[in-house]
């Protein structure tokens, strides 16, 4: 498995774990107390996404190839696909909400940062899946 496959798998694992743990914590807290204040803080697990350069270091040494044209092409294609998918989801979400709630009503301002946060998670997930689809989901002799 090459470096980018490992990073993509790590991203998917961290995002999945965050969603599961945070949902579980919020559910348990609401069941016990009727409201949730501590559960949302479990999203801090996503901070692990920023340490991938340290966990998956680039190959050291003069004879090691870090990234070739194929890797570059795959990463760009994955990013392009992720942003395109995000655009469709954003369009659908905004207009569905506008139709359902109605133009005369209003939404809580907290919905806007949640959209940005959800969008970032969506892009990261789709980009990681796109990378794994293009490289392959498993190791193939360090392709």
């Amino acid at each position: 498995m090459n470096r980018y496959q490992k990073i993509a798998w790590f991203n998917l694992a961290v995002i999945t774990a965050t969603i599961l743990i945070t949902s579980t914590a919020i559910t348990i807290e609401i069941h016990m107390r009727g409201y949730s204040t501590i559960g949302p803080f479990f999203v801090a697990i996503l901070a692990l996404l920023k340490i991938t350069p340290f966990l998956f270091k680039k190959p050291q040494g003069q004879s090691k190839v870090v990234c070739d044209e194929r890797d570059h092409f795959i990463r760009n294609r994955a990013a392009s696909f992720a942003y395109t998918a995000f655009w469709y989801v954003l369009f659908l979400f905004c207009f569905l909400l506008w139709f359902i709630i109605g133009p005369e009503n209003s939404v809580p301002t907290i919905a806007l940062p949640l959209m940005a946060f959800g969008g970032a998670l969506f892009i990261k997930t789709v980009s990681s899946v796109a990378i794994l689809v293009q490289y392959g989901w498993r190791a193939k002799d360090n392709e």
């Binding site: 709630i101 009503n105 301002t109």
Partner: peptide
């Protein structure tokens, strides 16, 4: 606070 739904489109 709240914001008008027109902000989304």
């Amino acid at each position: 606070g709240t914001i008008t739904t027109n902000y989304l489109p």
